[in-house]
Design a protein around this nucleic acid. Structure first.
Lengths: 169, 169
DNA sequence: CCCTAATTGTTCGAAATCGAGATATTTGAC
DNA sequence: GTCAAATATCTCGATTTCGAACAATTAGGG
């Protein structure tokens, strides 16, 4: 059924890594989305509620960093949560550019009720790895994420510092 | 200023794994999107071209599985590529439900030109891990992705088969 | 102090993606 | 052979997300 293999994909661990990273993310995200949809929320809305639940009052920009969407999308999602009475905005006293976000009592009650079953779904979704494997994956993915983020800002970031000449032409 | 810490996030390797997985995916994806945008393509459009480049002619459903979007989005993206003369549709001879997708000469030329520099970007993006670490991450993420996908279809899939009682109440 | 650069949050229009069907075809049970 | 279930693709409307602009504010260097 598979006709040919014109390029050298299988041998390239970097490209393989990107493929399996995307696939793993997609599969786990499907669990997450389905779990969150049970409660009539979108994944990003849930993310806002969760970060405020765990971190308390935060500026919009700080929430944005944690839910991994652009700032315009953050405004859109926060608007919806404010309309539903789950989140409230409050100007910061010290910096007049900043708007602080905070759960309303209703929002806190909601997220407090739905977070535990959602966490159970995530645990189940990643349950193919043992606790030890999960810890190892966390270490690797943390290094990968931090490194990739650093290279976004500083394109020639520490390439080949610790593992030289892997793929010379 | 931070009011409380109601839940036990830091200790839960499963939830940590989900967080770092999402972050790592996001960071690498930003490299990928920026690289692809250089060539005037969207990430999903690039995905279609790339899978056809590496696998040859494929049914729509097969392309869909590999680019990780819903079937309606697949139609949308393929339409755009057909309009741009990069991909062509062809009815399958053996199954009249199936439409086969194939690169046009122009599409093949384009992806052949842009894939190598894009691959270099991906290698750079994941360069924080050594080749050995990349291979290890591939193993773990493959198992994670396969397990999570299996649990989507079969919700009570092999939980705690090899690593018992991890999170009893 | 002042001017520029950077940061914060928002608005607006466009693009991408989804979800629920509709349609056509194939497969499989009987 | 026939009919129900499964599969493949597409249509259409709605939702989500982005990107580019913008105003307000703060930070930093000279």
């Amino acid at each position: 059924m598979k006709s040919q293999q014109p390029a050298q994909v299988s041998r390239d661990s970097a490209l393989s890594l990107w493929v399996v990273l995307a696939r793993a993310f997609d599969s786990v995200e499907r669990h997450s989305r389905a779990s969150i949809a049970r409660f009539g929320l979108g994944a990003t809305e849930f993310g806002v509620l969760e970060v405020l639940y765990h971190k308390g009052e935060l500026p919009v920009c700080e929430v944005r960093r944690r839910i991994l969407v652009e700032s315009s999308s953050t405004t859109y999602v926060v608007d919806k949560l404010v309309d539903r009475g789950l989140v409230q905005r409050r100007p910061s006293g010290t910096d007049r550019r900043v708007i602080l976000l905070e759960l309303t009592p209703r929002g806190r009650k909601l997220i407090g009720r739905i977070f535990p079953p959602h966490a159970a779904v995530i645990r189940h979704a990643v349950g193919a790895l043992s606790a030890r494997q999960q810890a190892q994956a966390v270490r690797l993915l943390r290094a990968l994420g931090i490194g990739a983020a650093a290279r976004l800002k500083n394109p020639q970031a520490n390439e080949d510092r610790r593992h030289p000449n892997r793929d010379l032409p």
